[in-house]
Amino acid sequence: MSVIEKLNSIKNGEMTAKENVESFIEVIDENNENINAFIELNYENALKQAEAIDEKIANGQEVGALAGLVFGIKANINVE
């Protein structure tokens, strides 16, 4: 599924933002030990944000253009 298709699916209620996040969590849990792509994960906050997005969509409220998508951020600066 392309990003545009996923966004439309979330905004049209065919998929929830929470379901999208949960599917990414499954992939990360299955693969991260081998590929070591993520060093810090905050599943609890990601799920909480997804639920808030789903609630807004259900109530007909405006959400951001990328609401419901999952992003990984590469930290390339060492911070102590």
Rank of each mutant, 00 (worst) to 15 (best):
S2H: 11
V3C: 10
E5C: 01
E5Q: 15
K6I: 13
K6N: 09
L7F: 07
L7T: 06
L7R: 13
L7G: 01
S9F: 09
S9I: 05
S9M: 07
I10E: 06
I10Q: 06
I10P: 00
E14P: 00
E14Y: 12
T16H: 00
A17W: 02
K18Y: 09
K18T: 08
E19C: 03
E19W: 02
V21A: 08
V21H: 01
E22N: 03
S23Y: 08
F24P: 00
I25E: 07
E26Y: 05
E26G: 02
I28T: 05
I28C: 06
I28D: 04
I28A: 02
D29M: 05
E30D: 10
E30V: 08
E30M: 10
N31G: 03
N31R: 12
E33T: 08
N36W: 01
N36D: 14
A37G: 06
A37I: 01
F38L: 09
F38E: 01
I39Q: 09
I39A: 06
E40Y: 12
N42A: 07
N42V: 02
Y43G: 00
Y43C: 04
E44G: 08
E44K: 11
N45H: 09
N45C: 08
A46E: 07
L47S: 05
L47D: 05
K48G: 08
K48A: 13
K48N: 13
K48W: 08
K48R: 15
A50R: 04
A50I: 10
E51A: 11
A52D: 15
A52V: 09
I53Q: 05
I53S: 03
I53A: 00
D54V: 11
E55S: 11
I57C: 07
I57V: 07
I57G: 10
A58K: 15
A58P: 00
N59A: 13
N59K: 15
G60A: 04
E62W: 10
V63E: 07
V63A: 06
G64P: 00
G64F: 02
A65E: 14
L66F: 07
G68E: 03
G68L: 05
V70K: 01
G72T: 04
G72V: 04
K74L: 01
A75V: 11
I77Y: 14
N78A: 15
N78K: 12
